[in-house]
Simulated assay, not measured.
Amino acid sequence: MRSFGKLAVACGVERLVLLSARDWVVPQGEEKLPCERAVRESGARWTILKPSWFFQNFSEDPFIAGQVQGGEIVMSAGGGVEPFIDADDIAEVAVAALTEEGHGGQSYELSGPRLLSLDDVADEIARATGRAIAYRPLPPDEFTAHAVRQGVPEEFAGLLNMLYGWIAENRFATLADGVQRVLGREPRDFGDYARTVAASGVWGGGGGVERR
């Protein structure tokens, strides 16, 4: 990343936008994150985006989307909540940071408009698809065994346990205002995303059916 930044600046690039994350917090603080530090020290006008979990994990990640298709979301996230965000909102913020004035030297935390538990996520998808979708929380060791049976490498299952564990402990259970600050509008709601994806047929079911 440091080499890329220096090459970009040498070639005349004036702005760099880095997609980082709220999740990657280290004990020494964010200034010690090497990719963020490399962009800040590149010589370009930099902007760093730190979003929460993407909505699209539930429709585009093969492991999680496969669970939704099967009617059960299995994670070791307990009853924690996360301000999930639409990746399209992140992309719009990135475009604005690259093409508009006023974003140099800014680090934007990005989130959706509300905190959602995995039970909430399952309910939203169930309403959108007209299918029965449930969330089944597992302890980390049981989740690892489950994921490995589904073909997930054990090392990657360990990484998922770490990420899900951060949800379980509500590490980032706060809303951020980066989308509003950059785009001047509210971020997209998970319910809108779920209805759009359901209508595409990705999750199965007819979509558009209100479950009561």
Rank of each mutant, 00 (worst) to 15 (best):
L183A: 05
G130E: 04
R149T: 06
A173E: 14
Q150Y: 10
P140V: 15
A145P: 02
L163E: 05
F156C: 01
I167T: 06
I125P: 01
D120G: 09
D177A: 07
G184F: 11
R127H: 12
F156I: 11
G184D: 04
A122M: 12
D177V: 00
L163A: 11
Q180M: 10
V152N: 00
G184N: 02
P139D: 10
A157P: 09
G112V: 08
D189P: 09
G130F: 14
H146R: 07
Y135T: 06
G130M: 11
G184T: 08
G151W: 09
D123F: 14
I125S: 03
P137V: 00
D141Q: 12
D123K: 15
N170G: 08
A134K: 12
L115C: 08
S117N: 13
E124L: 10
R149V: 04
R185N: 10
I125W: 02
R131H: 02
G184K: 11
G191D: 10
R127S: 11
L175S: 07
T129C: 02
Y135R: 06
L183Y: 09
A122K: 04
D123H: 15
L118C: 13
R127Y: 07
L183V: 12
Y164W: 13
E169S: 13
D189E: 13
G191N: 11
E169K: 15
V179K: 02
G151V: 08
A147G: 07
V148I: 10
W166D: 06
R181F: 07
T174P: 00
S117Y: 14
R114P: 00
G130N: 11
D177L: 01
P137C: 06
E169N: 13
D189N: 13
R136N: 12
G158A: 00
R185M: 04
L183K: 12
G165K: 14
A128F: 11
N161L: 05
A157M: 03
L160S: 01
A132M: 15
N161T: 05
L160V: 02
E154D: 07
D123V: 15
G165H: 08
E186Y: 09
A145N: 01
G112K: 00
D192E: 13
T174F: 06
G165L: 04
L160W: 08
V179I: 05
P153F: 01
R136S: 14
L160N: 05
A176S: 13
D141S: 12
E169R: 15
P187I: 01
T144Q: 00
P140A: 14
L160H: 03
N161R: 05
L116S: 07
V179T: 01
R114K: 10
E124C: 03
Q150M: 12
D120E: 03
W166E: 10
V148Q: 03
A176G: 06
D123L: 15
V179P: 00
A157Q: 02
D141P: 01
D192K: 14
R149A: 09
L116W: 06
I167D: 00
L118F: 15
A173M: 08
I133P: 00
N161I: 07
D192A: 15
G158M: 07
G151E: 04
G178N: 02
